[in-house]
Design a protein around this nucleic acid. Structure first.
Lengths: 126, 126
DNA sequence: CAGAATCCACTCGGATACTG
DNA sequence: CAGTATCCGAGTGGATTCTG
């Protein structure tokens, strides 16, 4: 997949990254786990609004892609810790450039939206 | 939204960007439109597998966010051109860092997946 | 040519209840 | 504590048909 080095090939590569971190909670989890080991319930508290189901699913996917490491302590009650791998930390570094872009153009986007919505709701009646 | 400057605030900002470009076809369209003006049917051909419906929807969203400019030539038959705005071009520049990350870790991710899948399919009956 | 409209399948994600 | 299992609604996206 993503053959050649044309424009669409690069677009394809970007898409693969987005498939990995595009989920609603992925980024938030990676960020938390980048600060150090976090436990399941701790994540549940810090990611406001996440359901148990989605937390589990997202954790599994991130673990599968090698972005998170899962450590089980065979104690009673059970204790499981999640830590971001170096690869994940590096990923978040590159996401910072995205944040910068978003902050630079925040107003521009808001304006564009407002103008678009105003245009669309106004039937150009003449 | 995205209040404060903590880790989750930055994660929130990233999410907003992803909401904008996370769609299945958004990146591909931005890439094509960055090379110069493109027409509707031209995009339909270049984005292999896209449906008319999704092309229209994605174009509208990108236009609404100010990433694409839509120019209508009142001719018969109609002619409409889409061009990436400077803001969109700048966005794609930052996405290149993502591509680099993906290429650096392509093998690492593949390996992680293979190992994970091998582990999961093997019941540790032990 | 550049769409708008309609129908449908599938996935994402939330709510809830149960368990080792 | 750290999940798993089940149900359900909403949104995403494909296929097809119709039109100025």
């Amino acid at each position: 997949m993503c053959i050649g080095d044309g424009a669409q090939a690069r677009a394809c590569t970007v898409r693969q990254v987005l498939d990995r971190i595009g989920g609603k909670w992925s980024i938030g989890i990676v960020v938390e786990a980048s600060q150090g080991p976090v436990r399941f319930t701790e994540l549940e508290r810090r990611l406001d609004g996440i359901s148990r189901r989605m937390l589990t699913l997202t954790l599994r996917n991130l673990e599968r892609d090698g972005l998170l490491e899962r450590t089980v302590y065979p104690t009673v009650p059970p204790k499981v810790e999640y830590t971001a791998t170096p690869m994940a930390a590096e990923l978040y570094e590159t996401l910072v450039t995205l944040t910068n872009w978003a902050e630079r153009h925040r107003d521009e986007i808001a304006t564009a939206r407002a103008e678009y919505d105003a245009r669309e709701s106004t039937v150009p009646a003449g």
